[in-house]
Nucleic acid binder design. Structure first.
Lengths: 222, 222
DNA sequence: AAATATATTTAGTCAAGACTAAATTTTAGA
DNA sequence: TCTAAAATTTAGTCTTGACTAAATATATTT
């Protein structure tokens, strides 16, 4: 049996950041699901994070958690590490975008600020990672993203793929085989209001995509 | 006060490997000093390592520890990671040889075998790290080193520096400024039997070096 | 060989971060 | 509104890897 994996404060903060991006506090249950640990364990850790000298989270019993400014900075630091690492694994070591997540997930906690600056510089201070996710800046601000879900497009609209929200290797490989990766130009040629399927033209090939996929691809409309 | 730093089994095995390279078992006290923890803590961990399903260390009360074959493989794995990482930090990110140790010390525990293979390949499967230390091979054998301490040389002998045994950034920077780095050709021009100082010529410059330094530099005699 | 000094081990604590089971709160349904 | 379901928290346990203090074993010195 797999020995119980312990999560760092960094893991909690990163997940809380993700879960609260919509503006709502993160619930204990959601956090537990994301972190793959039991809700009771989450409650315990959250109480600790809220009690830190500069509190990292805002917490009221039964009301969920949000990040304090200090907690948000810590979260963005880890996310910046993660996304720079993914970019760098792809660019310099030939990883494909479906292989990088796990490796970055471990490295993100141990690299120094010096290392972070060196890879950022070596990569030319990229703004997006291989999935198209925005990389927090060195002063720990998250750039605003104004992309639209592909599912919102309709026939005759053209767009450029900005980001793909998935760490599932199978889906990523599938999308790669369809040519649906960040930076690629696409055109909508058909729409079925019955099942919400979109027909998307990439180059000279067309693919019919269901909602399950089109909500995970974000584009910039042209 | 600094919170108590916990060491992994990998740290123990690596230190035990280093301490037992001379052929003798490693003592509890020596290990405790290397790991910067208390001897009592070492005893506890060693007992656990000796009790693992395939034992990682051979241990008899009051007699010190040695590595079992399984423990030795684990140690060489970590050492390979460390040395490949140091090499790679220097070659691809512009670290200097006095800056790499700390970073590699953290990264060595979290990189995957895939990552290891990728950097090894990208570096052309190097045999030595930036300090000239031999890198264990992929099948986890430590190559034999036949170098001689510089302190053993006498006037009129020429040699090539193979390795420098130190992680002290100050000493490393000093040696770098003297041009005494792995690969460099040197010649002995003088020897003082009074204080064991050697005069070493590098290029057209000569430096008088004391025993404290000449025992840390290993060379191949020509 | 005795006596002290040094090294090592044992015993008992502590903190982190997980878990389970039970208690409690909140939310939703009738 | 009252009750059942779902979510959350509390209480108490476990494991890991440190620590201190005390006990014991080995080494050194005379």
């Amino acid at each position: 049996m797999p020995k119980t994996m312990t999560k760092s404060a960094q893991d909690y903060l990163k997940r809380i950041y993700e879960l609260t991006e919509c503006g709502l506090p993160a619930s204990t249950n959601d956090l537990a699901r994301e972190l793959e640990i039991k809700p009771a364990s989450v409650t315990g850790m959250i109480q600790k994070l809220a009690a830190e000298k500069p509190a990292l989270v805002e917490y009221q019993k039964h009301q969920g958690v949000t990040l304090t400014p200090a907690g948000k900075r810590a979260a963005l630091e880890v996310i910046r590490h993660h996304r720079l690492l993914e970019t760098w694994l792809v660019q310099t070591l030939g990883y494909s975008w479906d292989e990088v997540h796990e490796e970055a997930e471990r490295l993100e906690h141990v690299i120094s600020e010096d290392f972070e600056r060196r890879i950022a510089a070596a990569l030319g201070n990229p703004t997006r990672d291989p999935h198209g996710e925005l990389i927090p800046t060195e002063d720990l601000k998250m750039p605003v993203d104004d992309s639209t879900p592909l599912s919102a497009l309709r026939p005759n609209q053209s767009a450029t793929i900005q980001r793909v929200i998935s760490q599932d290797p199978n889906l990523l490989r599938h999308l790669n085989s369809l040519g649906l990766t960040p930076g690629v130009q696409i055109e909508i040629t058909d729409y079925s209001s019955f099942d919400n399927n979109l027909t998307v033209k990439v180059g000279r090939k067309s693919n019919v995509l269901g909602l399950n996929i089109t909500t995970k691809i974000f584009v910039e409309i042209e």
